[in-house]
Design a protein around this nucleic acid. Structure first.
Lengths: 164, 164
DNA sequence: GCTCAGTTGTTGAATGCTCAATTACTATCA
DNA sequence: TGATAGTAATTGAGCATTCAACAACTGAGC
């Protein structure tokens, strides 16, 4: 596309986009701040623990865990290494595929998650859920679905996560 | 708050929250990806350039620039140092306050921004604006305003940015 | 069996962000 | 004037993420 036929944002579109940007920045920094200070867990790591905790056996293949937690393989690999150092996750060889690794949530990891969860949920309520009307929350969900659906389609590369 | 009286999220609330999380992750990684690959500019740096470009004289005090770009002073200081290395921003002493520094967008910086803008706007359209109905965009703006307003109020610390 | 493309996962370097500490200056109050 | 609290901005250490390169293995075709 040449510069001249760029479809610039209208004033209203730009205002909406910037307000959304600001909202995300404030929201996620509040979420991160609470988790970091009350539980010493980065939000990304928290998500990994949550996904593991919800799986039967509390264990998942690395690649499945990466997809479930919207994470790249590399990021997950580093993160699981840190979680392993804390004793919250254990890695084991996959029995059916010798390339594979299985990440398993330990009892200590589950306990850490259980201890962190109430404070985190409280922050999510204060920063988002309780701030919106139920109708707005529904709207936000539909908007989010549309964004995700658009990202799954497109021509250009737009997601960090493999579709496998 | 004791663990027992945590107001956990309902199924619907949790679904909305997770869909929103996923949407933000996919959206912002697409935005970052495009800027990084087509213009070699991190999104945070792009925002700094935009704020400067919109100011009369294309210059701002560091603290004002930090607030305008929703950035901590430290983050901005590091970022401007990098932008200075690229020749896109110049720092000068503030004439009215000898503690102060003024960040000035250079012609090269303005040119880099102008070159990057069309691609960035295109990505914002593909990932967000053109994906939503005008009504949804309005809803998103109101939702965003509510989130920002909630973050400005609260008891607990929830913003990284000073209110000065 | 052999080959080779594709998959799984890890590693290290580079980059950006956060946090705490620090320097330098301003403003207030006595 | 001198003392002191507050503000402006920077610095360096530590950490998380990205990227490219890599090692190990699988599976399909011949």
């Amino acid at each position: 596309m040449s510069t001249s036929d760029t479809r610039w944002l209208s004033a209203g579109e730009q205002q909406a986009w910037r307000e959304f940007l600001t909202a995300c920045q404030t929201l996620f920094s509040a979420i991160d701040w609470q988790l970091q200070h009350d539980a010493a867990i980065p939000h990304g790591y928290y998500e990994i623990l949550v996904r593991l905790s919800e799986t039967p056996g509390r264990a998942l293949r690395m690649s499945q865990l990466a997809e479930a937690s919207t994470s790249s393989k590399s990021r997950l690999s580093h993160a699981v290494a840190r979680l392993e150092e804390r004793g919250w996750v254990r890695r084991a060889d996959c029995p059916t595929d010798r390339r594979g690794q299985v990440a398993q949530l330990t009892d200590e990891g589950f306990a850490a998650l259980a201890a962190a969860a109430p404070g985190h949920v409280g922050q999510v309520r204060r920063s988002l859920i309780d701030v919106l009307t139920p109708e707005q929350l529904g709207q936000l969900q539909e908007i989010s679905s549309a964004i995700v659906a658009a990202a799954d389609q497109p021509v250009g590369p737009s997601r960090p996560v493999s579709c496998g």
